[in-house]
């Protein structure tokens, strides 16, 4: 084949003939196919435009760079100030310490910063409360059981509370984190990332989700459904994963399988009890997706399982 053939006299004549005949060829892709392609492309474009800033906008790009830097620097400065300033603001009254030993224990007041993150206190007393236990004795010395001080403490706490995580919430977050770790260790099917109703605060839940993402069976399920990987899907379904877990756009595995026309995957998910009406964050249901893509088999299958 590598042997060179004799030169064609006028190779462009063949090309011209080909083009002339092709121009008269009325064969075209069907309108149905064209609609499906354009609808799919439009959907992906919509997802992209929502999920990230437009790259052609230089102002947004500049803001995206300096804003995190500026806020990060401010946060670091505030944190440093909070850690250093209380050292100079604690009243040192050693003579009252002796009195406080004999005095009855102070009234139980919620300790807002004991387990939570450092926050911006509204007074020196509140800042003191946020400090570690080294100042406990000094606090006891400074604190008196008088009603006036109690009122000050109460006011300080009320001013601090909105900025500080309550101890109960912190405890719940810690407990939820431990549960998530235990689940991860046991390879439990449900992922914390998908449990949007979790009681853990978003920051903690997000951090744990990042750590667990690699082992997220729900994400694996969605990927297998999207790819039509029946073997992988079957193996994952045996682990009883959360079929209604959603991605960042609110799409379930069933919706993704429908979107990509994976009839077998849709059937398998429905057979395992996937909700046929689980819509994405825009309210698009699997049936609407199948109808838009002109997938009659998928539409019928979904309807048979109660899709509306």
């Amino acid at each position: 084949m590598n042997e060179m053939p004799p030169e064609a006299d006028h190779p462009e004549e063949v090309d011209e003939l080909y083009r002339r005949i092709s121009a008269r060829d009325g064969s075209r892709p069907s309108e149905q196919l064209r609609r499906a392609v354009l609808a799919h492309a439009a959907q992906l474009a919509g997802e992209r435009s929502r999920s990230r800033p437009r790259p052609a906008d230089p102002v947004s790009a500049r803001r995206a760079v300096w804003r995190p830097l500026a806020f990060g620097a401010l946060a670091a400065a505030a944190l440093g100030g909070l850690m250093i300033a209380p050292r100079f603001m604690i009243p040192r009254t050693p003579e009252t310490a002796a009195e406080s030993v004999a005095a009855p224990p102070p009234r139980e007041v919620p300790q807002p910063s004991a387990q939570g993150l450092p926050s911006a206190p509204a007074s020196g007393l509140a800042m003191e409360r946020a400090r570690p236990s080294r100042a406990a004795d000094e606090r006891a010395a400074a604190r008196t059981p008088a009603a006036k001080d109690t009122a000050q403490e109460s006011a300080a706490y009320q001013a601090t509370a909105p900025l500080t995580q309550p101890p109960q919430a912190a405890g719940r977050a810690q407990a939820a984190d431990e549960v998530a770790e235990a689940r991860l260790a046991a390879a439990a099917p449900r992922a914390r990332r998908d449990s949007s109703a979790s009681s853990a605060p978003p920051a903690l839940a997000g951090a744990a989700a990042d750590a667990n993402r690699a082992a997220d069976p729900s994400a694996a399920l969605r990927r297998a459904a999207e790819d039509g990987d029946l073997a992988g899907l079957g193996a994952l379904l045996e682990g009883h994963p959360d079929l209604e877990a959603r991605d960042s756009l609110g799409r379930t595995a069933l919706l993704l399988a429908t979107l990509h026309g994976r009839l077998d995957a849709v059937e398998a998910l429905l057979a395992h009890g996937a909700d046929p009406n689980a819509a994405d964050s825009r309210g698009t249901t699997p049936l609407q997706t199948a109808l838009a893509a002109d997938q009659p088999l998928l539409s019928e299958l979904l309807k048979r399982h109660g899709a509306r």
């Binding site: 064969s27 064209r34 992209r48």
Partner: peptide, 22 residues
């Protein structure tokens, strides 16, 4: 289109669909 402009894809599709189809 990669930046989220669906109309750009439509233009590309119309421009090349017949070639790919053939």
């Amino acid at each position: 289109y990669a930046g989220g402009e669906a109309a750009a894809f439509g233009t590309l599709f119309r421009r090349h669909e017949l070639r790919v189809w053939r």
